[in-house]
Design a protein around this nucleic acid. Structure first.
Lengths: 197, 197, 197, 197
DNA sequence: AATGAATGAGAATTCATTCAT
DNA sequence: GATGAATGAATTCTCATTCAT
């Protein structure tokens, strides 16, 4: 029963309003991708088939749109990997899996994510889940002697960004994978490194 | 001898024009830094104490301004390091020096450089000098057995960007230096790595 | 029955929008007449009491304004004459009436009509009705032996423009009438000419 | 001897200045023809290979350029016909010749001539010669019973413009000639008209 | 006398946001 | 709740004209 929910959130949307919201998000993704992040909001509204004021009601600012888009993407494209990682017996493999999954998500619409990051809006709910998961894996890896012990949770955002610069839209996964391996290699505990010989 | 150069280029600017050009560049740097890359060009003109049309004459687009600013910064802040590196007896140390010098230059006005990169205008004269130097050092390092042999000149731009994400304006050099060391460590030839024990 | 029309067109304007549109057109006519065709669009908006963007919404270009103005003038000042001409028993008299009516309409705002003509926008709906009517009258006149048979519908625009050059704003109708008569005289079938004696 | 000339005019130009003036006129004709009458004066200067201030010195306004261009064209393209007409034994033929010559001159750069006319600058020295010649021929024609006697010199400008509307750049002379004949026919004295039968 | 750099006022156009229907 | 018309401020860009060199 909704009425007894202890935290009902910002009130459930009416069915049609929800549909509008979804159409707006889809339209915004398409518009941002095709016409850039500066696309007039009116164009997005047009694509979504709603009036500007309707868009405005749901997403008072361009950033609200960006946040919502990424909230959705994190949920759909990353959450499964996060869940799987939690139960993975090998923490190093799980760590790599999560980072790779993030890269895959990153590989489209990088600009909009970067815009979000600059505005400091990345570490919202969705980003938090990602980094919380990585933090736990980092700990487990270090306890298992698989990862350098001088790394701290604060390093994780930087590491992820370092990995992400190699992600080039239009180039295959093998491209960025190579750089990711390079970087991961540097994170390993020295004893865990592949024998150079 | 300059005076006998058969191609004097597009004719030297008049003294007053040169002074204006310099004032505009200085104003633009300040404006971009303080008010962001979208700063109205008119504001830049105002800061420089010239009329908008004067700015337009020299820099028909915002990008032309960005390019000129970076051309200048590369020249003033990086060229000495490049020259020094060329003669450095230890290629690995020289490589590290150049990358570090680039990071130092990077550490301010990152946004504008990133903007330039997106527009593909980075690999102009100034960027070319940097990467050409790095390419030679890469070769020398590899020949000296100091660097992984699977790295190619094409990797250099990616590596530089990976290093640069840790460069945070307002944080000291020690911050990004740590990540740079991590990354450089991954580039070393396996035999050259510090003994894990 | 309008209500059953399957193609209602691009939807009727809201009442307030329609009022604005009308005010803009009126303002534009006044502005063009008083300040010339190059009048800043912002001045027109000011006269109409609307914001510049409102003007832009309805008339994205100066030409759209011109076209709309003339569409209206043709409709209000010429259509009655066209209708009357269709039923006139004497085709020659009808032809003369229509040309004279056109001249009267022409006699103000000639510049803007000429501008339209140069841009090839004259032969739109309103211009078409005029020339279609004249074409029919031309045929009827020729069949009745009242007009030279070597004239074709393609001559009509030229003939109208020849007649119109005598139309001088600020001079009475008798002035251009004299030249029109001269010209019409040349169009008559030879047998129909007034006896020179 | 120049020094004894009773009206030396605005002082003879230095040789180089004269050459500049000519280059500017040529450049202006080309620029007006290709880019329209609104072409920036700076573009014209560039075409002529002079600085804007030089153009400005010779032709303080755009209209001064137009006037000079047409002064030149009248002189080169029309004056021979005017001279020939003066001595022609048949005044009617001479009249027709002059009008046709004017049409030929008209047939290019019509826009700029029309611009001149609107500004009332047409009846300057060159235009005056044309109309003065036509006026004399009109008289002679009327005295010879070849032209309607109700025509006056004031009709001449209107008649010329009526004839000129048929002159279409890009269409051959036969096109406008037909309309000119029509018009001329209307000017003839009734007795002089070709027998309709 | 010519140059070409600089001017500064002006015009077109856009867009986030509000408001009457 | 949605609509879409209106807003008006902001920004880019242009050009005739002047002025230092």
């Amino acid at each position: 029963m909704t009425s007894s929910n202890p935290d009902p959130g910002p009130r459930p949307l009416r069915a049609d309003a929800l549909r509008n919201q979804q159409r707006i998000l889809t339209a915004a993704r398409a518009a941002f991708a095709e016409d850039g992040l500066e696309t007039p909001l009116e164009d997005i509204a047009k694509r979504a088939g709603v009036a500007p004021a309707t868009l405005y009601r749901r997403f008072p600012s361009r950033d609200d749109l960006l946040v919502a888009i990424w909230e959705q993407r994190f949920q759909e494209e990353l959450d499964p990997a996060l869940t799987a990682a939690a139960d993975h017996p090998d923490p190093w493999a799980a760590f790599v899996d999560v980072v790779a999954a993030a890269m895959r998500m990153w590989s489209v619409e990088q600009d909009s994510l970067e815009a979000l990051r600059r505005k400091g809006a990345l570490m919202q709910s969705s980003g938090l889940r990602l980094f919380e998961t990585l933090r736990r894996l980092l700990e487990r890896c270090q306890q298992a002697g698989r990862m350098r012990t001088d790394l701290t949770p604060d390093d994780l955002p930087v590491i992820l960004r370092m990995a992400s610069v190699a992600v080039t839209p239009g180039r295959s996964e093998t491209h960025w994978r190579r750089y990711l391996d390079l970087l991961l290699d540097a994170l390993r505990a020295p004893a865990d490194r592949p024998d150079p010989r």
